[in-house]
Simulated assay, not measured.
Amino acid sequence: MPTVAFLLAPRLHLLDLAGPAQVFSGAADAGHHYTLRYVAERPDVPTAQGLTIHAGTEWPRLTPEDLVIVPGWRARRLVGSSGFGAATLRRLREHHEAGGTVASVCAGADALGRAGLLDGRRCTTHHQLQDELAARHPRARVVRDVLYVVDDGVATSAGIASGIDLALHLLATRHGPALAARVARAMVGYARRNGDEPQASAMLRHRSHLDDVVHRVQDLIDARFTERLPLAELAGSVGCGERTVTRLFTAATGITPLRYQQALRVERAEHLIGRGATVESAAHVVGFADARMLRRLRART
């Protein structure tokens, strides 16, 4: 049962904390049993929005499977704003050295920098703090105008709501994009992995809409993309006509249901081929009758 430990600083922004916490809580609701813990140097943590949070002062026992997230706090300048002591920064560093992932939202990147975790690594933070982060941690490679960056077990995100994007990305990396899409949908949010790289997942790339009928069709295709799925069966699953499903699906995603299924197949086949499978065997695994269609679709891509 992995733990997500949130390290809380005074004047933290509630959404910096609540966004990622909601993502991992949603994953737990979906059957991936994350335990959320909240740690601070003092038990009562005032937030920038006026609510005081009660946190534990004892760190949970962490393993390399666990995640530590440092939400950001209100600060016009980073210098002298976080107040984390040497012992806390050492805990961050030790968790990463043991193989664990350490992440931050917004100003939380400064805590990672003070722990030495940004040295030689790419990172980001809120656009208003990027210049100061680069000046305070000259060995860090600050990337501007992105939502998040992940580099060697150190994940940093930009301002406020981008913590949700980063948390969804971490969830997709650990459990696959289907779970991230499911959690994002439950949150009525976008499922996206557009940090500093192009979106690579068809499941996420075509889930950034709020059409419930189309999401239900996608749920069926996601679960059975290796099978033959006639349009009539997809339409029947949502109680609509075939032409209506095609029209709604294309309007919401930009492609037809068949193209979406093919994209999932090709994506899975590329994963298998990259790990040593032949084109022929990969085509068979993902549901193509032979390798010709897979080769044609890969060439088109």
Rank of each mutant, 00 (worst) to 15 (best):
V154A: 03
T88G: 02
I160R: 12
L117Y: 02
H175C: 04
M187S: 00
P257L: 02
L171C: 03
A27Q: 03
S25G: 10
A21N: 10
V79G: 12
A109E: 01
V23S: 07
Y260S: 15
R174F: 12
W73G: 05
R300M: 05
E280D: 14
A30S: 07
P138T: 04
V183T: 09
E242D: 01
I273C: 09
Q49K: 01
D151V: 09
D119Y: 01
L168F: 11
L92P: 08
V285A: 06
A161W: 15
P257M: 09
V214C: 01
V142H: 08
R121L: 02
A21T: 08
D212A: 07
Q262Y: 05
R216V: 04
E94N: 06
Q128P: 07
A21I: 10
T35F: 06
D165I: 11
D110G: 15
G19W: 08
C123H: 03
R114K: 04
S104W: 11
H137L: 04
T52L: 11
L204E: 11
T35P: 06
A27S: 13
E280F: 12
T301K: 15
A186Y: 03
D211N: 06
P257A: 00
V238S: 10
A111I: 07
P71H: 13
V213L: 14
R275E: 02
A48E: 04
L294H: 15
R61C: 13
G239A: 07
L112C: 11
R228S: 15
P230D: 00
R207L: 11
R298G: 01
G236H: 10
A289M: 05
G113Y: 08
A200V: 14
V183K: 03
R136P: 05
A252G: 12
P71N: 12
A135K: 08
L8C: 02
A252S: 06
M1S: 15
T124G: 06
R268E: 12
P20C: 02
A184K: 09
R243N: 11
L220P: 00
E267C: 00
A283G: 04
T125D: 00
F225M: 06
L92K: 12
A180L: 02
R114T: 07
G113V: 09
A232V: 15
G153A: 08
Y34F: 14
V45L: 03
E97H: 13
V150M: 00
L272M: 13
G56Q: 05
A289E: 08
V213H: 13
T125H: 00
Q128G: 11
I164T: 12
A55S: 00
V285L: 11
R114Y: 00
P257C: 06
L168R: 07
G153P: 00
G100A: 09
R185C: 06
L112P: 10
T52K: 10
G236S: 10
L171A: 01
A252M: 05
E267R: 01
A191P: 12
G56R: 09
T3I: 15
R93T: 10
G56N: 06
A75M: 06
V68P: 02
P20L: 00
V217W: 04
R265C: 04
